[in-house]
Amino acid sequence: MGLKPIKLYWRNHVPNPSKVLIILEELNLPYETSWVELQGLKQKPYTDVNPNGRVPAIEDPNHNITLWESGAIVQYLVETYDKANKISYSTFPEKYLTQQWSYFQASGQGPYFGQAAWFNLFHEGAYGESPESAKIRYGKEIKRVAGVLDGVLAKSTWLVGDKCTYADLAFTMWNSQVAFIMSSRTGEHAWNPDEFPNFTRWQNACLGRDSVKKVLSVLSEKG
């Protein structure tokens, strides 16, 4: 018997739901999407799915489970459905190194890149002010995270082992937003991808995967 579609709750212009979409595509899993309007995030019926009121969340009828938090969703999908280890490892120490990078993405990339996006792009419109100190702080964090990755990737093609894993792909959608997030920054605060050649090469390799290209196409169509 074939798998029933996994339901993904999502909205565009938010990298974390796209992270889950990429994994669904990589594992060739059947899925359907449910668009959540901004005003619907913090109220029922969506808060019955995710009491935190954010996307993504999934409902998997194959195992009767509802999950939210993109990192937890990705780990669930990989452990449940990637039996061939297409984008994961079951060997030691690779399995745990992959988890390490996945947690770094969830704690060290996503939140800081998101704060940089907020203060560079949206804070002034919401509050009528533009805090330069916050822009500097989170811009530095983007460069710091990129530098950590660049240093590791100077020694290897991928973060772990000899193949692209879910950990590499977890970074892709936030990385793809950096030029836009930092577009207003100039001088020493500007984003220059040439300063991070290994990071840039790796990101381009991730962008070249069929799963990522399909997701980017879907996002473009959704607008």
Rank of each mutant, 00 (worst) to 15 (best):
S88H: 04
D150S: 07
Q100N: 10
S107K: 06
E94C: 01
L97C: 12
G151E: 10
V160C: 01
K83P: 00
Y81G: 04
L77G: 01
G108H: 08
N85L: 06
P111K: 09
S130L: 14
A134N: 07
Q99F: 00
W118N: 06
V148S: 04
Y81E: 04
I65P: 03
I87R: 11
Q100M: 15
A116Q: 03
S90L: 00
V160Q: 02
A167T: 07
F119P: 08
N85W: 02
G161R: 05
R144Y: 07
T165Q: 07
E132Q: 15
T91S: 15
Y96S: 01
L77W: 06
Y127F: 15
G114P: 06
V145A: 15
K95Y: 01
T91A: 14
L121I: 10
I87T: 04
D150V: 05
A72L: 07
A154E: 12
N62I: 13
V152N: 06
Q105V: 09
Y112A: 02
L77R: 09
D162S: 13
N64R: 11
Y112R: 03
T98A: 13
N85Y: 03
T91L: 01
L67V: 04
Q109E: 13
Y81K: 08
W158V: 10
G110L: 01
D162W: 06
H63K: 06
Y138F: 15
A126C: 10
Y112L: 15
N64D: 14
A117C: 06
Y89N: 00
L77N: 04
C164G: 11
W118T: 02
N64T: 11
F104Q: 10
P131L: 12
T165R: 06
L159M: 09
K143P: 05
A126W: 05
V160Y: 01
G114V: 09
T80G: 13
Q115V: 10
G151R: 11
G128V: 09
N64E: 06
G108P: 14
W158S: 07
L97T: 00
N120A: 12
T66G: 08
E124T: 07
Y138M: 11
A84D: 14
N85C: 14
G125N: 07
V78L: 06
V78G: 05
E141R: 08
G114R: 03
S107H: 13
Q99Y: 04
I136L: 11
Y89R: 00
A84I: 00
W101R: 05
W118Q: 09
K135W: 08
A154T: 08
V74G: 00
K86H: 12
E79N: 15
Y103E: 03
